[in-house]
């Protein structure tokens, strides 16, 4: 029998710190896949699972190491708890200098000094990718380029929420959220501030996603993502750093993710994962609860636990002491 509340893999737990201040997040999404082995008799030695982890994105504006050191020093003073062996992605998408002259290893070392572990590189040209390989860095696809038109085979898609305890952190599809027709944001990832931004803006800015519970100074509010057209099966919409409002039905097989709250003014038949960065204060509101799964900060309930007296009613879901509560809206 399924218990009413289960704990999904909390992305924060991999960092051991619940109130980490995030600068900008990148989410990696993938589908479960088992390793196929040739020998039928032996069980696979491991299982591949998709994960959904917040990562810091460092968007480097220039190759000035001295300036980077100064900026990092300032940043550490501002939010020391952030820089504790935190994994980070180095992005060169906003890089303005000659990338050929970039000393990748020096940057890696420098970041390490400040507790930031560069795990991957994004937006690099071929030459730099080769260097990255030598440094054992993963290469990530450029965020600006849209995924090629490859449509996934339907077999790949499975509503695993019913059986998979960790499902709450594993979006069931790889399709990127260009589904968000109502929004101009065509990337699943959105960076909430200008880290290491080009000249003019302060080089380091404090991120302030909804997860922020440190009470430190907040900068401008993150815009709410508003979707006005139906969210269909297989679509995934992620509101990075803020709230998500959907003014249309959300189909079974669709997935909503937000660092903040989720509001659905229509039937919610798919999955809704609020506070995906670990924000336990986040809530889910919907006009008609018909969801496959509702999750807040990794605590979730699946469809069969939701089919009670509140089914098809207007409700809100909130978290108290690791328990996901559903109560009617009046």
């Amino acid at each position: 029998m399924l218990s009413a509340n289960r704990r999904g893999i909390n992305p924060e737990s991999s960092f051991g710190k619940a109130n980490r201040r995030l600068i900008g997040n990148v989410f990696f999404m993938s589908v479960d896949s088992c390793v196929a082995m040739d020998q039928p008799s032996s069980a696979p030695s491991f299982r591949l699972k998709g994960g959904l982890f917040p990562l810091t994105l460092i968007e480097l504006a220039n190759g000035d190491l001295q300036r980077l050191r100064t900026d990092l020093t300032l940043k550490v003073a501002e939010a020391p708890s952030f820089f504790q062996q935190a994994p980070a992605v180095l992005s060169l998408e906003l890089f303005e200098d000659d990338a050929q002259a970039l000393d990748l290893q020096a940057i890696q070392q420098l970041c390490l000094e400040f507790g930031l572990i560069i795990v991957a590189l994004r937006g690099a040209d071929e030459a730099l990718q080769a260097t990255a390989k030598e440094l054992n860095l993963a290469i990530l696809a450029n965020s600006r380029t849209k995924p090629v038109v490859a449509l996934e085979p339907s077999a790949e898609k499975e509503p695993s929420a019913q059986e998979e305890p960790s499902a709450a952190k594993e979006p069931s599809t790889q399709e990127q959220s260009s589904a968000a027709q109502g929004s101009s944001d065509d990337s699943e990832e959105s960076v909430t501030d200008d880290l290491f931004s080009p000249v003019g803006a302060p080089a380091l800015e404090t991120g302030q996603p909804a997860t922020d519970s440190t009470g430190a100074a907040r900068s401008a509010p993150v815009p709410t993502k508003v979707i006005t057209t139906p969210v269909r099966s297989g679509q995934q919409i992620y509101a990075a750093g803020g709230d998500l409002i959907v003014l249309a039905p959300v189909s079974a097989g669709a997935e909503l993710l937000a660092d903040g709250n989720i509001h659905v003014y229509g039937p919610l038949r798919g999955r809704a994962l609020a506070g995906v960065n670990g924000n336990t204060e986040a809530r889910v509101f919907c006009q008609s609860l018909e969801a496959e799964l509702i999750s807040i900060a990794g605590y979730f309930r699946v469809n069969e636990d939701l089919r009670d007296k509140h089914w098809k009613k207007s409700v809100q879901a909130s978290l108290t002491d690791e328990t996901l509560n559903i109560e009617p809206l009046r």
């Binding site: 449509l151 297989g234 079974a252």
Partner: peptide, 23 residues
């Protein structure tokens, strides 16, 4: 019906018109 829903989603997100910001 579920497959139709999926196709509708693809239409409105991956088609040329969707890429042009149209429906």
């Amino acid at each position: 019906v579920r497959d139709s829903d999926r196709i509708l989603g693809i239409l409105q997100s991956k088609s040329r018109r969707a890429e042009q910001g149209l429906t």
